[in-house]
Nucleic acid binder design. Structure first.
Lengths: 109, 109
DNA sequence: TATGAATACCTTGTATCGCAAGGTACTTTA
DNA sequence: TAAAGTACCTTGCGATACAAGGTATTCATA
């Protein structure tokens, strides 16, 4: 069995939730997100993150602003929009539902 | 935003885990699984379940045996193999990891 | 006996997503 | 001025959930 693949599949969709949780309180640019997720024990690849951010932007859940860096090129800082806040609430509900399901199944028999 | 799609995405991979949890203690056939998952507040489509069961069988994580039904055609009862038990332990670990990540992110700031 | 409904299994086609690999552009440093 | 570092993005691939549609067996009933 390919455990890595299963873990990868398990995280599908979860990533979106985790990133929006991250952006709840402060704007971040890509490397911030990668690092903070890493600290939370979740590995994200650039090739995963950038398309995801673009999609959330396109869907109106995220906005961004350019900020100069003290070192290197400018950075895109993403923020949650109002629609994003609302979507996050729905994701919270979905997460609770999954949590409930797994707990029910784990406790059975 | 398409909430249904997000929920669907969130469940990718989770389904595999949930089904193996279900089969831990007793053999089930497809409709059993659909019904028991429904009771645990998770909806699964036939078109999702059958290919998934076939794949887990092909990977050696599940086995099955035919059993007569008192009513209707015979049923394929799936069971966890030893490899399946081992894989389930790894999935438990992956699940704990995701749980930890989400909790960390939810508690931040 | 024949036929229709119910049950159970499976396949195909589509959309979406994570990921590896590769690419572009700007900034700093040697 | 060239090389290294930083930041952003795209392409191609494999995997998966789902809707829709299909096959086969059993049972009830006309």
């Amino acid at each position: 069995m390919n455990t890595d693949n299963t873990k990868s599949q398990m995280r599908k969709g979860m990533l979106e939730y985790c990133i929006m949780l991250l952006l709840r309180h402060q704007p971040c640019y890509a490397n911030d997100i990668i690092q903070r997720l890493h600290e939370a024990e979740m590995i994200v690849m650039e090739g995963t993150l950038y398309p995801l951010l673009s999609r959330l932007k396109r869907d109106g859940l995220l906005g961004y602003e350019w900020r100069e860096s003290t070192q290197g090129p400018p950075r895109k800082y993403y923020v949650l929009t109002d629609d994003g806040q609302e979507a996050l609430r729905q994701l919270d509900a979905s997460w609770e539902e999954i949590l409930r399901t797994v707990n029910i199944l784990k406790l059975e028999k």
